[in-house]
């Protein structure tokens, strides 16, 4: 089914532009056209369908669901909801405080917030179409594990000690009145099909409007890598998964801020060019999950010490992920 995008790219590149198929330029342009048309078509279709299904899921519901849950169920559900619940990263702070003041432990809230940028419908869609099912499943499992383990770790060191004082107070109050007196009316929604359609239409336009330029940038960089980095260069220099290449990839990834949509086409190109899977994953996750703007926002609710701990956890886990996958990918 996806072959049609490749055919379209061939027709435009070799037919309409009559480029010689054996040149680097033709290769890069073909890659660019195939990937952008494929991604745009899939995005429009799938964002709409997914939004239709999850129209009535929102952060308020998730909060009510997580409040009063057993811790271990909580880490799993927190991370799972982080993957599927739509919410804009500019809402992180209100979401953090909303969860906290409902008495939800910091670890569960952080499991939600860490998983959220790593896994979302756009990322999964791109991974499946560009890198296949197997890789996607691995990516999702790893992303959720990072969220869950980081959350459990934060609770085990009693991270709530290092919240800003007003947030700590809200958490205490929330846990004291752990009885379920939820804000009625804010969560009870049953939607008609028309409402769902309106929501899905809005979501599609909104998300597409936000991510299309990332796709162009990501695929453009991917195409440049694809066409102009000499064949075998990456493979020759980094292909053995040299141990230092993983922490280096993480360190390069952090100041680069992107969302998953922009990075995945680059991942595709890196892997095709022979960069080991573990190194690629580490780079991608560091780019997506650890960004300075977002950390500065979290400063409003966390003291520096906690902020530094969260940051360190992410760095260490991405590096470990890279090493583990480089070690096991030859046998997968």
């Amino acid at each position: 089914m996806l072959q049609i995008f490749s055919d379209l790219a061939s027709w435009l590149t070799f037919g309409v532009m009559s480029l010689d198929p054996n040149t680097k330029l033709a290769d890069a342009i073909h890659f660019f056209i195939e990937d952008t048309t494929k991604i745009f078509a899939l995005l429009l279709l799938m964002i709409y369908v997914i939004a239709l299904v999850r129209a009535s899921l929102n952060v308020e519901r998730v909060r009510d669901y997580l409040a009063g849950k057993n811790r271990f169920v909580g880490y799993f559900m927190g991370s799972g909801f982080g993957a599927v619940t739509p919410f804009c990263s500019c809402s992180s702070i209100p979401v953090f405080l909303g969860f906290t003041s409902a008495g939800i432990p910091v670890g569960i809230t952080m499991a939600f917030l860490i998983t959220s940028p790593l896994i979302n419908e756009v990322a999964v869609l791109l991974l499946v179409s560009l890198l296949g099912w197997q890789f996607t499943v691995i990516y999702v499992l790893v992303g959720m594990s990072v969220g869950m383990l980081a959350g459990a770790f934060l609770d085990s060191i009693r991270a709530e000690r290092w919240l800003q004082s007003f947030a700590a107070k809200a958490l205490e109050q929330g846990q004291a009145q752990a009885s379920h007196d939820n804000n009625e009316g804010m969560t009870s929604t049953s939607m008609t099909l028309t409402e769902r359609h309106e929501f899905a239409k809005g979501e599609t336009l909104e998300i597409f409007g936000r991510v299309w330029k990332w796709v162009i940038i990501g695929v453009g960089l991917g195409a440049a890598l694809h066409g102009f980095v000499p064949d075998g260069w990456i493979e020759a220099h980094l292909g053995d998964g040299q141990w230092w290449s993983v922490p280096a990839a993480v360190l390069i990834g952090i100041p680069l801020y992107s969302n998953a949509t922009g990075v995945i086409p680059i991942m595709e190109s890196l892997i095709i060019n022979g960069l080991p899977v573990g190194t690629t994953l580490a780079f991608c996750m560091a780019t997506v999950a650890a960004s300075f703007p977002e950390f500065i926002l979290l400063k409003q609710v966390m003291q520096w010490r906690l902020l530094a701990i969260v940051f360190a956890i992410l760095l260490i886990s991405f590096t470990l992920i890279g090493w583990i996958f480089n070690a096991i990918s030859p046998i997968l």
Binding site: N58, E60, C90, S91, P94, L97, G98, F166, M186
Partner: peptide, 27 residues
Amino acid sequence: NPEVIMDYKVMSTPAVVIDEKLVHWGS
């Protein structure tokens, strides 16, 4: 101010408050 936003029990922004009554949130 996140503290004030929290006091209105709002988690999805933007939200609108008119004469101290929360009328809308999330879009």
